[in-house]
Computed example of a mutant assay.
Amino acid sequence: MASDPKVHTFEEVSKHNKTKDCWLIISGKVYDVTPFMDDHPGGDEVLLSATGKDATNDFEDVGHSDSARDMMEKYYIGEIDSNTVPEKRTYIPPQQAAYNPDKTPEFVIKILQFLVPLLILGLAFAVRHYTKKE
């Protein structure tokens, strides 16, 4: 009679993040993939990059074969306590300044607001000076 699978906390699993000690969380299950590190077709870096998080999406995005999924069974060591897995953070983009369609920096706009009237005034004086009838 098989015993109940061991339940691991996220913190515990996250500590196993080295080439010689690597655990992954995939679909709520915990796998000790340490013996597979040298044999993984994508290299050990791929497995290491999936530690410390729920690697389900990483695993599914690759499109592993049925034989790869069957192979996982021998690395299975238990379940993850889902209450200990941090919630995924929602990306909040930084607040943007008012829309500036031509992407001109704000200080340039302020300088132009000051200089353009002066240039117009100078042009008006020049035109008046050179078109004056004597």
Rank of each mutant, 00 (worst) to 15 (best):
L115R: 14
A98F: 08
P93Y: 02
D38H: 15
A55P: 05
K20S: 13
D4H: 13
G52W: 10
H129C: 00
R89V: 13
S27C: 01
R128G: 03
V7G: 03
K132T: 14
F59D: 06
I120K: 13
K88A: 01
H64L: 03
T51C: 10
G52M: 07
A124H: 05
D44Y: 13
Q113H: 11
K133Q: 13
K18T: 12
E45P: 04
T19I: 15
E12L: 03
H129N: 03
L24V: 09
N83M: 04
T19G: 01
I80E: 00
Y99T: 13
P35D: 07
P86W: 02
M72G: 00
T9P: 07
A2M: 10
C22M: 13
K15S: 06
K29W: 06
K103Q: 13
L47V: 06
H129K: 10
M72A: 14
E60T: 11
S27P: 01
K88V: 01
V33M: 14
F114E: 13
T84K: 00
E134V: 13
Y76M: 00
D44V: 11
G52S: 06
V85Y: 00
H40W: 10
G43L: 13
G43N: 07
H8K: 03
C22S: 14
Y76E: 00
Y99S: 11
K132V: 01
D4T: 04
I25Y: 12
L119G: 11
E11F: 02
F36V: 08
V108R: 10
K15L: 11
K18Q: 15
L119E: 06
S82V: 06
G28R: 02
I77K: 04
I80S: 02
K74C: 05
M72I: 06
G52Y: 08
M72T: 04
I80W: 02
S67N: 05
P5L: 06
I109V: 11
T131N: 07
G78H: 03
P93A: 02
T104Y: 05
W23A: 04
L115A: 14
L48C: 12
S67T: 13
P86S: 03
S82F: 00
A98T: 12
C22L: 02
F125G: 03
E11K: 15
N57K: 05
V62E: 02
H40Q: 05
L121H: 06
A124T: 15
K53P: 05
E45H: 11
A97H: 01
P5E: 01
L123Q: 14
P5A: 06
K6G: 02
N100V: 08
Y130F: 15
M71V: 07
Y99C: 08
P35Y: 10
G28M: 06
D81V: 04
S14K: 14
L118V: 15
I109C: 11
H8W: 15
L115C: 10
V46M: 10
F59H: 04
K29M: 15
V85N: 01
E73D: 09
S14R: 12
S65G: 00
P94F: 01
M71F: 08
A126N: 09
Y76H: 05
S49K: 15
T84F: 00
L24N: 07
I92S: 05
T104V: 15
I77C: 02
C22A: 10
